[in-house]
């Protein structure tokens, strides 16, 4: 093999870089998947859930996307909750009314999943509790 020294050195560097995340985390164990907290006064005092239709944790991106287009582009602001009542499709004014714990409800998982949605660049965060 020509230039075997250079090639092997290059390969070693490549493999070391590529595997570095695994090597550095050896023995650390995977961090536990965080769960969104539902521990807010508004939710606790609630009898039956009103908004959750189906596995919101998995689908909320699509839900919010649909709601956004529905509200902004079609002027359809309301949708029935599972209790049959109409609710305003609004992140700041409906969702976060009850889920007022943004840090535990949104940010914790987003940080874990390394996603950075730009909701809060424009929409106003609920005031910090306490």
């Amino acid at each position: 093999m020509y230039d075997s020294g250079k090639i092997i050195t290059g390969l070693v560097i490549f493999v070391a870089l590529f595997a570095s995340p695994f090597i550095l985390n050896v023995g650390g164990g995977a961090p536990a998947v965080p769960q969104p907290s539902l521990d807010t006064p508004a939710i606790k005092s609630m009898g039956n859930p009103v908004c959750v239709r189906e596995n919101m944790q998995a689908n909320h991106m699509q839900v919010l996307d649909l709601w956004r287009d529905s509200v902004v582009r079609d002027s359809n602001h309301t949708a029935p909750g599972i209790d049959g009542q109409l609710y305003e499709m609004s992140l700041s004014n409906t969702c976060m009314e009850c889920h007022s714990n943004k840090a535990e409800f949104c940010d914790r998982c987003h940080t874990y999943a390394a996603v950075d949605p730009f909701c809060w660049d424009c929409h106003i965060e609920p005031p910090k509790e306490g």
Partner: peptide
């Protein structure tokens, strides 16, 4: 199906 699921069978509607 997501639309039906997420916006309910009646779907989204304007404010009354």
């Amino acid at each position: 199906s997501a639309k039906e699921l997420l916006l309910g069978p009646k779907g989204a509607a304007p404010y009354p």
